[in-house]
Amino acid sequence: MTPVLEVRDLRKVFGDLVAVDGISFAVGEGEIYGFLGPNGAGKTTTISMICGLLKPTEGEVLVQGLSVADDPRAVKRRMGVVPQEVALYEELSARANLEFWGGIFDLRGKEMKDRVAELLDQVGLDERASEPVKNFSGGMKRRLNLAMGLVHDPQLILLDEPTVGIDPQARHKILEIVKQIVAKGRTVLYTTHYLEEAEDLCDRLAIIDNGCILAEGSVDELKAQLGEGSLLTVQGGFGAADLTTAASGVSGLQPVEIADGRGMLLVGRDGPGVSHALEGLFQAGLTFDDISIKEPNLEDLFLRLTGRELRD
């Protein structure tokens, strides 16, 4: 089956800066594909090339088999873009904003009226549809921002960090709407630097940094890259070499990320266990100020892949 979105060897260079460096991925119908990475990783640049705002230096983007470069208008009709910044006409009402957006996608008459009413209801703004947007809270604006990208009922929806800067309740509402969209068979490309969102929402994820996809797969597949077991994190006055040497002497203990004064180690599920591992480290003469044990998550994987935290 033809993927709804297919990105092939996409590359974008600004002067000396390689913003996106040969990215390839494909997203199928009814799938939420996440782009997880810190600010500046290349997520928005990739989105901009997919939606035709930026011309790629190299590579190709296909939407339902149509090339963005060759047939941009047809592609744009199939695509809904929700930008990272809230882009609305503040002096107009929610309804007027949606009607304008529907209008430039050639919606008219009853079709427009019904679609706008449906969306206002879906994003919970039907009771304040006639109010100027400038009176709305940040969360309400975010919901309308999302609705604008859905007004023409696109097959592919590009959501660029749609929950930035809003409270947990509003975020929850937006995530619910995204799930409803996908339940109708629509495809979503979702960029975020919020780990919990990516884990909760996405069927598949790409971890992106410095314009490259570092890892790709479902949440479980990505976590599995860290190995099965528990993550032991220790902090203290030790050096990185000391911890590496000590860990190598303990069976079932794999270093994930080690630096001076801090270390993350995977205690294998089939090994002798956490207490055994800690005992081995103590016996090697190390002392710790802080010890924590947890299940590995994507943050840990990102740390392992890039050597830095997602929110650095």
Partner: peptide, 14 residues
């Protein structure tokens, strides 16, 4: 400045 122009460029309108 409001981002609306950029947003319009994502529509089919040339």
């Amino acid at each position: 400045n409001s981002g609306m122009l950029r947003r319009q460029f994502t529509s089919p309108q040339p």
